[in-house]
Write a protein that binds this DNA or RNA. Structure first.
Length: 127
DNA sequence: ATAATGACGACTC
DNA sequence: CGAGTCGCCATTA
């Protein structure tokens, strides 16, 4: 857009939202990964901040964003939301371990286009 | 403009 | 594995 001098810089929010929206179904991304893809590799907190400010009913698949280790950090502010997130992910085919953590080893999205179906079949190493 | 916060991450005990 | 601490950055008050 030709708007010299008025280049409204997209806030970190917009970038983060854009990245989250790109997460393929059945895959999950960590806050740090989303932040990095958004251009803030050192601001995983900002990603969380953005989602926190996210209004309910947003078309944004926020449930595909999990904390490091596949844990649902959302539980810190709303245990109920954590349950919703888990149910949604399971419905998309995302596997959880006995501790209620997402098996990142098999569903972590690296920001690249999804490989062939089934290519993600990487066994999760149990701690 | 300064201070405080926070859906985090990684490290240490 | 659990809890605590520091560092990081952008947003909010």
């Amino acid at each position: 857009m030709a708007r010299p001098g008025a280049a409204a810089p997209p806030t970190a929010y917009a970038r983060i939202y854009a990245v989250v929206r790109r997460i393929p179904r059945g895959r999950v991304a960590t806050y740090g990964r989303v932040a990095a893809l958004a251009g803030l590799p050192r601001a995983p907190r900002v990603a969380g901040y953005a989602l926190y400010a996210l209004p309910a009913g947003s078309p944004l698949p926020w449930h595909r964003v999990v904390a490091a280790g596949g844990r649902l950090s959302v539980a810190r502010v709303s245990p109920d939301s954590a349950l919703t997130q888990r149910l949604r992910l399971e419905r998309e085919g995302v596997a959880f371990d006995a501790r209620g953590r997402v098996v990142l080893a098999a569903h972590e999205w690296n920001g690249r286009a999804a490989s062939s179906a089934g290519a993600v079949r990487r066994r999760a190493r149990k701690r």
